[in-house]
Every structure is written in C-alpha cells, then in structure tokens.
C-alpha cells in the first residue's frame, strides 16, 4: 500500500469515527508502528493545509480527529442559523488558567491564588469535562488534585499541555 492509499484509509476511518482515534489504533489497522503513524499523520495534516481544505486533522495527545476549520465558522453558523453558545465566564477561565499552568493542583491552592472560593466553578469545569481529578495528595485530608483533560486541549487548540503559551512574567 502506498502512502496516498494509507492516507485515504485513515481519512475514511477518521470520518466514520467522528471521535478522536488513537495513533495505536491507526497503527493496528495499517500494520504500522506508532512512530510511522505520527509521520503519516503529520504529512496528511500538511496536505490538508496545503490543499486549503475545509477540514483539518486535529491532533491531541497522540489522537487524531477530523474537524472543520475555524476560519469558516461564520459560514457554518449561517448554515446552522444559530448563534454560537456562550463561552466560559471570566471566573471559569481564570480558574482554568490556574489549573492548566499549575497542575496537578488542589482546590486550596487555586483559592489562595484567586483569593475567592472556587467550589461552584470547579463543579462547572468538571461537568463540562474540561478538568478532572487526577490524583489525591498524600497529606492529611488527602485533598483532590485537579488537572486538565484532552477536551480542554481540544477546546483551546492545543495538541499537548506543553503547547500552552508561557505565563507572562513582568
């Protein structure tokens, strides 16, 4: 099977899946090792860009998914005929920023940085699947440690947590 054919196979799989597909899974189907899959996917993604397609390959933590290009979201909105749903509140974004940059982090840490209680916001973020409990701290009370999810990365256009823009220090 040549490369173009493999890309076609992956494309059809990503279409059927809709959800992100793991690099390992693609490797299993095409009989490739993960490193080769990553190479193939990089090339495929570049092809999409080069051909200026309406779709792109979104890669998050070694998974791949088909999505539309945000540049054309206005036209999609026109097609759906619906306003986009409101984004997160300022407080949620601030809390999310603390978690993203300091994870794993406890509620107490978040609250001491923000200077306000965060119970409600943490629940909202948990419910929206943007953060998760990653572990518990080995101190009295065993407080929950929070971290961000793959959905967080996807929602903010990051392929891994290392891609977060560095915190600005004056």
């Amino acid at each position: 099977m040549d490369e173009r054919e493999m890309m076609a196979v992956v494309e059809s799989i990503l279409f059927v899946s809709g959800d992100p597909v793991d690099a390992k899974e693609i490797g299993r189907i095409l009989d490739l090792d993960v490193r080769m899959v990553r190479k193939l996917m990089k090339k495929m993604s570049d092809c999409y860009h080069f051909e200026r397609r309406g779709l792109q390959i979104i890669s998050v933590n070694d998974t791949y998914q088909l999505g539309t290009r945000p540049e054309y979201s206005n036209y999609i909105q026109k097609f759906i005929g619906q306003e986009r749903s409101q984004g997160l509140s300022q407080a949620s974004l601030e809390t999310l920023a603390v978690i993203a940059y300091r994870q794993p982090v406890t509620k107490a840490d978040i609250e001491s940085i923000r200077g306000v209680k965060c119970d409600y916001i943490l629940n909202t973020l948990l419910n929206r699947g943007l953060i998760q409990e990653v572990a518990r701290m080995d101190t009295p009370g065993r407080p929950i440690l929070y971290g961000t999810t793959d959905l967080f990365l996807r929602s903010f256009g990051l392929s891994s947590i290392n891609e977060l823009p560095p915190l600005e220090t004056e």
Binding site: I58, G67, T68, P70, S73, I76, L88, E94, G157, L167
Partner: peptide
C-alpha cells in the same frame, strides 16, 4: 493567571469555531 485567562478566552473564541 488573570492574563492567562484572558488569553484562554481568545483561544476559546477562535477554536470553538471548529465543528466535529
């Protein structure tokens, strides 16, 4: 973190335009 939150807001506005 407040500034980081503002940056996240910009990113959110842009990337919420991706449909799956």
């Amino acid at each position: 973190y407040k500034e980081a939150g503002n940056k996240l807001k910009e990113r959110e506005a842009y990337y919420s335009g991706i449909f799956y």
